[in-house]
Design a protein around this nucleic acid. Sequence first.
RNA 1: GGGGGAAUUCCAGAGCGGUCAAAUGGGGCAGACUGUAAAUCUGUUGUCUACGACUUCGAUGGUUCGAAUCCAUCUUCCCCCA
Length: 406
Amino acid sequence: MGIYEELKARGLIAQVTDEEEIRELLNNGKAVFYIGFDPTADSLHVGHFMALCLMKRLQMAGNKPIALIGGGTGMIGDPSGRSDLRQMMTTETICHNCDAFKKQMERFIEFGEGKAMMVNNADWLMKLNYVDMLREVGCCFSVNNMLRAECYKQRMEKGLSFLEFNYMIMQSYDFYHMFQAFGCNMQFGGDDQWSNMLGGTDLIRRKLGKDAYAMTITLLMNAEGKKMGKTASGAVWLDPNKTSPFDFYQYWRNVGDADVLKCIRMLTFLPLEEIDAMDKWEGSQLNRAKEILAYELTKLVHGEDEAEKAQETARALFSGTGDAENMPATVLSEDRFENGKIGVLNLLTACGLCASNGEARRLVQQGGVMVSDKKAEVTDVYDREDFSGEGVVIKKGKKIFHRAQI
RNA sequence: GGGGGAAUUCCAGAGCGGUCAAAUGGGGCAGACUGUAAAUCUGUUGUCUACGACUUCGAUGGUUCGAAUCCAUCUUCCCCCA
């Protein structure tokens, strides 16, 4: 089975421009492909992780990846899948984010001579001259067609600025540029990028009369049709400082039954046969599958040690035995105490478990808080000494554990 | 450039000048049930020194005993015509 077939079997491929050609290129290690990453935050998240895995898989099959950081396109902002104008980012934030991305990616992909490349499209996009640019590529784009593109459709109702309208042209230009500069013959991206990517293959065909290919990766959706990798408080980050390995583990440990196998197939590197065997699992047996999923992903992102720790901690906490060293912890600062004492409500907000005192109060009143295995009351007060040594374990709801120490 | 409309709490979306911290739905959080799943049911969802007080309804001024609701200016967005 070639790599293309494997990707397909894993359900990673959404759309392709020319299946035969792409299969041929990928299976024979002849593809020089790129995936773009927009520096919209200072850390990569789960969505990017899929792309990184894909890069890794293809690299292992002998193809050459180019990771493109959108330092230039970030100046514009991609309107795809957005219902409103993206907030414009300052040049400084973009640079900062680019650096952060670079560091994270190096953990997954091997860069260097003859291996993967990392480039920043600011290097060529920022130099472009408006009129030259229009004359060079502007003539190749049909506004009529662009307006028909899926990525703009929803924005036709809400309003779309000219700035954002140009995003597709910028992205197309990237491909065109890299096709010539690095022999890049293929582009991958999320399925929401399809129209932007076609813009690139089209431009190459028109300008150079050559063929280039594009393929999109299935977006990771749950059974309800929502994007996965998001929580109420935002994305699930790969940066351990933004999403702790334990929380990361728990996110996957808690996916719905209907989604486990899909996630394992798409995100892990487990052999397909092994996954197919799991397909038959059902009911509470799926809990085992969820553990595997969570462990494997944590291992990939944070390393084996962290995965081990997270798993042990989770098992200990949920089985109610053993103590759990690796749960998220907060060190209480002195000024949180008043005369050497602290009330539950303050404790909860100090640990970031509640956003406000009022929220903490409600939570406690509804019986959602346990401190050291005892149900908390609003009037509870703790001594400073209680937090020395191992500290105190706070349980919010059924699944959130937190340790408070001094 | 001309004409019309809209801005409400996380989102969507109600809201007579007093009874509005603001209907309803979604989402979130918690409780029950469970398998750390889903579905379902219940409670809750501005802040605080909490049976009371304080700050909110795009921004700034104004009318009024009183304004999310009326007036003016500004900002942003949408629609129609050019």
